[in-house]
């Protein structure tokens, strides 16, 4: 390769890969989200701590947990507005993301927060938010099946054709 006249010959080609993966023991969260718009957390059988996102085992005392359905409302613990992101989400900037503690949960979920008036003060700590879901036809059993909006904007969001409220 030390030859000065060396020239690499390049061929442009494509690789197509179909693959699937599972959410393992957390599958129930995604199945119930997709089918019933339920937000399922887990509760430690020993210490009673409620985990959202759900944990199969309690990270505090290492005991088993059991599924527990949580309300669709909660409050923002901390947030930011994203202006630069990966290719999957770049079309949607700017959007809010926040760690949200659902009522009855002890830990906070990371999820998108949308607002008609997206300014930092609108999604600051303590802001009450409520979950809005894609319609059944659009839900795929992924985190992007739902997002949160400030409580006072909830009705306006679920009245849009492509979204709906929970039960």
């Amino acid at each position: 390769m030390t030859d000065k006249n060396f020239q690499a010959h390049e061929i442009r080609d494509k690789i197509k890969i179909d693959y699937k993966y599972t959410y393992g023991s957390q599958s129930k969260f995604f199945i119930d989200l997709m089918s019933d718009k339920k937000l399922q957390g887990t509760k430690c059988k020993k210490c009673g701590k409620v985990w959202m996102p759900p944990r199969v085992g309690c990270s505090d005392c290492f005991e088993d947990t059991e599924w527990v359905e949580l309300p669709h409302s909660g409050q923002i613990m901390v947030s930011t507005i994203v202006w630069y992101t990966t290719s999957d989400f770049i079309q949607k900037i700017p959007y809010g993301i926040a760690f949200i503690k659902l009522d009855n949960a002890d830990t906070a979920l990371l999820q998108g927060v949308f607002s008609e008036n997206l300014v930092p003060s609108k999604i600051k700590k303590g802001q009450r938010v409520k979950a809005v879901f894609k319609t059944a036809a659009d839900r795929e059993g992924k985190m992007t099946d739902f997002f949160f909006v400030p409580e006072d904007e909830y009705e306006a969001w679920i009245n849009q054709e492509q979204y709906e409220g929970g039960k």
């Binding site: 996102p53 990270s59 613990m77 901390v78 760690f99 503690k101 830990t107 906070a108 979920l109 990371l110």
Partner: peptide, 11 residues
Amino acid sequence: DCFIGNRESMG
């Protein structure tokens, strides 16, 4: 905690 949402004091 690896997950920030699990931390009691996020700051």
